[in-house]
């Protein structure tokens, strides 16, 4: 198994995907390397890519400067971000910065869409995994809101 295929198959985003399907997804991949402080995703910009972390650490940050709030740190191989690009056409909702040297697998939305029309099951599985992950994060965010508002 290639290192990239290993990253893919370890990602919760790919849960339930067959080896052949993983291979077809991998064929749409671009490898990217970022240095400390590099901005990988810019809040407010159009969403055009899905990203999977191959190695390194990234910070998801809402706002900039004094208003910046760290929403989440991703540091596990297979962690993903930018997936909302696949389900809506809204601009990026947060910034993502590399907080060390970071290797990323990027999947351009346009290429994935072509793959979806060829292999519909890939889309179904991806969308299901995204929805599951969103629902989990929504529960986490709502718990955090409750805790924060209780604390203040």
């Amino acid at each position: 198994m290639s290192p990239e295929l290993e990253v893919l198959s370890s990602s919760p985003l790919m849960h339930g995907m067959g080896e052949e399907e993983l291979g077809s997804i991998l064929s749409t991949m671009e490898r990217r390397i970022y240095e400390v402080g590099d901005r990988i995703v810019e809040e407010g910009r159009p969403s055009d890519c899905l990203f999977i972390l191959a190695d390194g650490v990234v910070d998801v940050v809402k706002g900039e400067g004094d208003q910046a709030v760290l929403l989440k740190t991703l540091d596990e191989r297979g962690d993903f971000f930018g997936e909302m690009a696949l389900i809506d056409i809204l601009p990026r909702s947060a910034n993502v910065y590399a907080s060390g040297e970071t290797r990323i697998l990027a999947f351009p939305k346009q290429v994935l869409t072509t793959l979806f029309s060829r292999v519909p099951r890939v889309q179904m599985t991806l969308v299901l995994n995204i929805a599951r992950n969103l629902s989990l994060r929504l529960r986490e965010a709502d718990t955090l809101i409750l805790e924060l508002s209780r604390g203040s």
Binding site: Q67, S93, A141, L148, S152
Partner: peptide
Amino acid sequence: LRNIARVLAQRLRESNVLVASIASDS
């Protein structure tokens, strides 16, 4: 499923805005 994901994404965006505003207030 995509519609549901879209609705969830929208709610998550709203919740994250709220988290950010509460956190930067405090």
